[in-house]
C-alpha cells in the first residue's frame, strides 16, 4: 500500500510525512502539566503591587513636573521681564518726575512771570 502510494505521481512530496508511521508518543514535561493544573496563588498580588507601584511613580513624576513648571527660575524671569515695575518703587519716583515737570513749566523762559511794568517814559507837559 505504501509502495503504491509512493508511486502515485499525483501525491505531493510534502504530504509524505503524513503517511509515515507515528513514532513513540512524547510525554509532556511534568512541570508544564503542573503549571496548568495548579495555578500559582502568589501571582495575583504581585501584579497588583507592580501596577500600584507604577501608578505611584507616575503620580510622583507628574507632581514633580508640575511643581518644576510653576517655580522654574527662567520662567519667573520672563514673567518679571514682561510685568510692569513695582508700584512701591515707581510711585514716589513718578511723583518726583511730575513735581519737577511742574517746576520746569514755571521756569519757561518764553513766559516771564514778573515782566517789566509797561510805564510811560515820557510823562511831561511838552508839546509832542
Amino acid at each position: 500500500m505504501k509502495q503504491s502510494d509512493a508511486q502515485d505521481q499525483t501525491q505531493f512530496i510534502t504530504e509524505s510525512p503524513l503517511y509515515e508511521k507515528p513514532t513513540a508518543r512524547q510525554e509532556p514535561q511534568q512541570p508544564l502539566l503542573d503549571d496548568e493544573k495548579t495555578p500559582n496563588n502568589k501571582e495575583f498580588p504581585k501584579k497588583i503591587v507592580l501596577a500600584i507601584g507604577i501608578c505611584l511613580l507616575l503620580l510622583v513624576l507628574g507632581a514633580v513636573f508640575i511643581k518644576s513648571r510653576q517655580s522654574s527660575p527662567g520662567e519667573k524671569n520672563i514673567l518679571l521681564d514682561d510685568s510692569p515695575l513695582d508700584k512701591a518703587i515707581s510711585g514716589p519716583l513718578e511723583q518726583r518726575v511730575q513735581e519737577l515737570s511742574q517746576e520746569l513749566e514755571l521756569a519757561d523762559p518764553s513766559q516771564e512771570k514778573l515782566p517789566f511794568p509797561l510805564v510811560e517814559i515820557k510823562i511831561n507837559l511838552e508839546d509832542e
Binding site: N77, I78, L80, D81, L85, I89, L93, R96, V97, L100
Partner: peptide, 19 residues
C-alpha cells in the same frame, strides 16, 4: 534736581526686573 532724580532712579531700578 533732574540729575539727582536720574541717579536715584538708576539706583532703585538697578535690581528690578530681569536681565
Amino acid at each position: 534736581k533732574a540729575l539727582v532724580l536720574r541717579h536715584d532712579m538708576e539706583e532703585q531700578l538697578a535690581t528690578a526686573g530681569g536681565a
